[in-house]
Amino acid sequence: MKSAVLIFPGSNRDRDIIRALEVVSGQKPALVWHQETTIPDVDLIVLPGGFSYGDYLRAGAIAARSPVMSDLQRHADRGTRILGVCNGFQILTEAGLLPGSLMRNAGLNFVCKTVQLEASNANTVFSRQYQQGEIFDCPVAHHDGNYFADARTLDALEANNRVVFRYANGTNPNGSLNDIAGIMNETGTVMGMMPHPENLIEELHGGVSGRGVFTSLLEAA
């Protein structure tokens, strides 16, 4: 599986993603700086976590308007798989590639802990290695992860099984509507999620339950 990781000023989980992609696919991802205007032809493009532009204006808002994003849109139109984790999810919503918005956590705290996720839709290229309804551990680390969308958008997401991951067993850490942790676009090729699956892929991490996101993508490539 060929992959690329987009890097913005203030990205700080890029190395975690690079490591996860290398471990799972055996191939180093291409690294693409936000000012570049071309993303190479790959099977998967990842927007990593972090605090691009210091979360100025709104989390992900400035990064979503950076030069590399027009080529990301072109890849999205062609159906290249795109994964946004944490700040990457925020950037994808700000860029209009995913609906809704990630707001300040309802409890106002930065949350950094392990939560439980449910694979609400295990029939996607991002989640097929999980069982439908499977519940697994995954870390979160964010201040703005409170998923919000208007009622009509939420209904459309639910009706079309576009909620891929949900916080389970009362572990919703941020007040997200419908316990939403990760959603995909209409065609199922773009997914954003607040939790960090790349931080649970090796035994040294204390578990491998996040690996399924990457092995799912590998299988789909």
Partner: peptide, 9 residues
């Protein structure tokens, strides 16, 4: 519309 406000919220 393009930057200062996120018109979703």
């Amino acid at each position: 519309e393009k930057l200062l406000a996120n018109t979703v919220i």
